[in-house]
Write a protein that binds this DNA or RNA. Structure first.
Lengths: 102, 102
DNA sequence: TAGAATGTTAGCCAAATGGCTAATGATCCG
DNA sequence: CGGATCATTAGCCATTTGGCTAACATTCTA
């Protein structure tokens, strides 16, 4: 459990759902109406997001209320920032390495 | 061309290569020696990273010098930050929605 | 020049991914 | 009750992904 969040972000529809949920919680229908694929397909995408821990689900009657879970998103963002930060800390070394290693 | 960077980050080996390159440019061997898979497999992973624009390659004799290309990484990081930022801007609305919608 | 080193291509294969339809479950409402 | 609504499961299929071995191309070096 708590599957790879990067893998979950790999599909455009799933990123679209995240974008929708970032503007506020929503039901499945509200969160997915923008995408032109079948309901079962969307259901699968939601499952992937849920298993990655990126969204939470509360069942309320016949509706499922989805909400963004920021923590895994934060971790993913942090990972990216770290890599970028390290890289940008050694810009001197880079060009010389690429052009002509001593 | 300039394929989906998130998709490229979806595999742990590819993220590992990014981590290695964030510490400085490296040859293929240097960048991949930590991973216990065959050379052709690694070669494929590098191709994915390159097509996503996440790394650059300069061929120098028999060695290929790899370097991180920060720009797509920055864009991915920015996307995540934006979603998180929006979400965190409406924490009041969230709980009421989840618990009891008016 | 022969062999070692670096890396890629070609081709194969099993498993995962992403789509679909049909059917099901559960709930709301007239 | 009975139909409409919201959403999922089950099962199918084509494509993609990620791994492998074998073979090749290039370059360095003893």
């Amino acid at each position: 459990m708590a599957n790879d969040p990067f893998k979950a972000l790999a599909h455009p529809i799933r990123r679209g759902v995240i974008e929708r949920l970032a503007q506020g919680p929503a039901t499945v229908r509200e969160a997915t109406s923008a995408f032109d694929v079948s309901k079962p397909t969307l259901s699968k995408h939601l499952r992937v997001l849920e298993e990655a821990g990126l969204i939470t689900r509360v069942i309320d009657g016949r509706e499922h209320r989805l909400a963004l879970a920021v923590e895994p998103l934060r971790e993913a963002g942090t990972w990216i920032d770290e890599q970028r930060g390290r890289w940008e800390g050694l810009f001197d070394a880079v060009e010389s390495y690429l052009e002509n290693r001593a």
